[in-house]
Amino acid sequence: MKILAINPGSTSTKIAVYEDETPILVNNIRHTVEELSEFPRIIDQFEFRKNLVLDTLEAKGIPFDFDAIVGRGGLLKPIPGGVYEVNDAMLDDIAHAMRSHACNLGCLIAAELATLLPSCRAFIADPGVVDELEEVARITGSPLMPRITIWHALNQRAIARRYASEHNLCYENLSLIVCHLGGGISVGTHYHGRAIDVNNALDGEGPFSPERAGTLPAGQLIDLCNSGRFTRDELKKRISGSAGLTAHLGTTDVQVIVKRIEEGDTHAELVLDAMIYQIARSVGASATVLYGKIDAILLTGGMAHSDYIISRLKERISFLAPIYVYPGEDELEALALNALGALRGELPIQVYQ
């Protein structure tokens, strides 16, 4: 089976070509700010990114003869995890999605490219809107605002399955806490194959991150919204995009911040330690969801490369359970293997409706 996996991100489009379980191409197509500034909306980048995928395959000498094309899932309505075949209902919902993110382009590009081949199928897998919350986890103090989940479902689940495989265990039998430490931070409580509690890592819940504000004081946020100082779009950016480390310190680059700390910047140290503190606090809260019975805590994402962050985080949470670190993300491999499992009949293909 030959599979093309496509993962659109805010400043890149990552692609991989797999023959069965073997990667034959992994490529990161980077986009400059100047290139993307030509497009008023993210959805307008569709043709640009699609053509870059085709051009890259041609330049690398990869024949366009795939059994499946799988894209990163977008911000659809809440759905259970798994593999979904792209259909008209999904494409329509993405076209009218209330939240804008580059991941919304994944199913659009996959569907369009699949039409170029006679028997190629288009899939998504474990999109960021996967919702497997326990009912008790949905309730907030206001009936107008139930909790929703927007998180790194694809990578969290891939890392959980990787941990299980490495230890000859079954993911569906484990109780895990998985932390994705990237531009956004999601802390998921995985119980027997379901993420029964996880924060909305995009627009306002959980730890603050390099570019997102996390949970904010509600009263002060309401006052700010009614102050007249900012437009609605400006306020949205102060929650996601221009928040977190970049709002405090002017950069999302943890290496740069750590260097500043080493040079004596005490404010940078306080802010970075505050983020680590909030991550640890979220892990501790997740431990209560599992009644303290945790098989392992898994740390993943780009910031898991940072010894500064990981060492200090371990100091706070190591008493809870064994900790395993998986720096970076396995999203392209996860996409490809989900598509392969669907083609082989090993994973059920779910219908989006």
Rank of each mutant, 00 (worst) to 15 (best):
306 S>L: 08
10 S>G: 13
285 A>N: 13
101 H>W: 04
252 T>Q: 13
124 I>D: 10
120 C>P: 10
38 E>D: 08
160 A>T: 01
43 I>M: 08
58 E>L: 12
25 L>C: 12
202 L>V: 07
44 D>K: 02
240 S>H: 14
298 L>Y: 02
248 H>F: 13
65 D>N: 14
66 F>G: 05
277 Y>C: 10
227 S>P: 01
130 V>I: 07
124 I>L: 09
111 A>C: 07
120 C>K: 11
104 N>L: 04
276 I>E: 01
122 A>H: 10
282 S>H: 06
43 I>Y: 01
347 L>R: 11
135 E>L: 15
122 A>R: 13
196 I>L: 15
201 A>S: 15
322 P>C: 02
184 G>V: 03
333 E>L: 13
337 L>E: 05
126 D>A: 04
316 R>A: 05
149 T>Q: 12
296 A>C: 04
217 P>W: 05
264 G>H: 12
82 G>E: 06
189 T>Y: 14
254 V>Y: 12
151 W>F: 14
59 A>F: 02
146 P>K: 11
244 G>W: 13
187 V>P: 03
61 G>L: 12
80 P>W: 08
322 P>L: 11
246 T>F: 09
35 E>D: 00
142 S>T: 15
300 T>V: 00
124 I>S: 11
207 P>G: 09
260 R>T: 06
292 G>T: 12
302 G>W: 07
331 E>Q: 04
300 T>I: 05
193 G>F: 12
43 I>R: 13
246 T>G: 06
189 T>M: 11
245 L>Y: 14
201 A>K: 03
318 S>C: 02
190 H>F: 08
102 A>V: 00
243 A>Y: 15
143 P>K: 14
268 A>E: 04
19 E>G: 11
120 C>Q: 08
202 L>W: 07
103 C>D: 08
270 L>V: 13
227 S>V: 05
161 R>Y: 09
345 G>L: 00
131 D>T: 03
172 E>S: 15
31 H>N: 04
143 P>T: 11
98 M>F: 08
198 V>W: 01
50 K>P: 04
75 L>Q: 03
99 R>P: 00
288 T>V: 06
278 Q>C: 11
162 R>V: 03
341 G>Y: 03
346 E>L: 11
28 N>R: 12
253 D>I: 02
70 V>D: 11
142 S>K: 12
305 H>I: 01
312 R>Y: 03
306 S>A: 06
309 I>V: 15
232 R>N: 07
246 T>V: 15
197 D>N: 15
123 F>E: 07
105 L>M: 04
